[in-house]
């Protein structure tokens, strides 16, 4: 079953006074299946973040459409979009986006509190997640008191606790050291194996090599995609590297 469908997405930024136009996305189409773990790769400025913002309904495309479980994002009313986002999407960001004013537990509870869940239900939901992510004993701490890896695991917990259709991860290993990054990627794999659909945007080859499928974006278009199938992480890593080299040296597009 297709969870996410992206059709002919185009995004043009216009400077404030309409002087110049910058095309961030030219024509992007792809889809993500239920239970899939996909990664989107591309260099800085290739339109990754723009794409993610549109998928997250934080930004609107110039043309084209995004369907989440068959529902067009553009048909959702402005008033309902936040609730929709809260209930269907989970986010993991490069810079964690935890609020310093809340303890880690309260940060994780935030989306549920917004949905009006009771404290009992929230703690019931949190328990298995905290156990799985190994953050049970730091929940009372504040974001500035823990390491980057711990922060990111809390951010993952925040994304998971709403039981979303799709988790969007924007450069999740970008602020982590290699060990913490390794841990997080293993975690993502586990979550995925339990059936969670994941879409990750990254330019780390290492991160992308953990995904089942890697989409390459160049100049605002899907340039190429790779399926991992039965490959090992190492083989996938090699394959991604080769593709990136080809892209960088101006290779011809092939499917």
């Amino acid at each position: 079953m297709t969870i996410l469908e992206v059709n002919n997405l185009k995004k043009v930024y216009t400077t404030r006074f309409g002087g110049s136009h910058v095309q961030a996305l030219a024509n992007v189409s792809f889809s993500v299946e239920q239970g899939e773990y996909a990664a989107i790769m591309g260099e800085s400025g290739s339109g990754k973040t723009t794409l993610l913002n549109i998928l997250a309904s934080l930004d609107k495309p110039t043309s084209g459409e995004v369907l989440l479980k068959g529902k067009r994002l553009s048909t959702i009313k402005e008033r309902e979009i936040s609730a929709f986002r809260r209930e269907n999407l989970g986010f993991v960001f490069q810079d964690f986006n935890l609020l310093d004013t809340f303890s880690l537990q309260d940060n994780i509870f935030l989306p549920l509190v917004l949905s009006g869940k009771s404290y009992e239900e929230m703690s019931r939901r949190l328990e298995p997640i905290a156990h799985k992510l190994g953050i049970g004993d730091i929940l009372a701490k504040y974001p500035y008191e823990v390491s980057g890896g711990q922060k990111q695991r809390c951010a993952v917990a925040r994304a998971l606790i709403t039981q979303p259709q799709l988790i969007l991860a924007d450069e999740p290993t970008g602020s982590l050291d290699s060990q913490a990054a390794e841990g997080l990627l293993r975690l993502f794999k586990e979550i995925n194996q339990e059936g969670q659909t994941l879409l990750m945007v990254t330019h780390s080859v290492k991160a992308a090599s953990h995904a089942q499928r890697v989409l390459f974006i160049k100049d605002g278009e899907v340039f190429h995609q790779l399926y991992k199938a039965g490959m090992s992480d190492e083989a996938m890593y090699q394959k991604i590297s080769d593709t990136l080299t080809t892209m960088a040296t101006g290779g011809v597009r092939h499917e």
């Binding site: 809260r86 609020l99 935030l110 917004l114």
Partner: peptide, 12 residues
Amino acid sequence: RFEIMQKVGMSR
């Protein structure tokens, strides 16, 4: 904080 809250699912 305003931005984070929006990303996490609070409406504007």
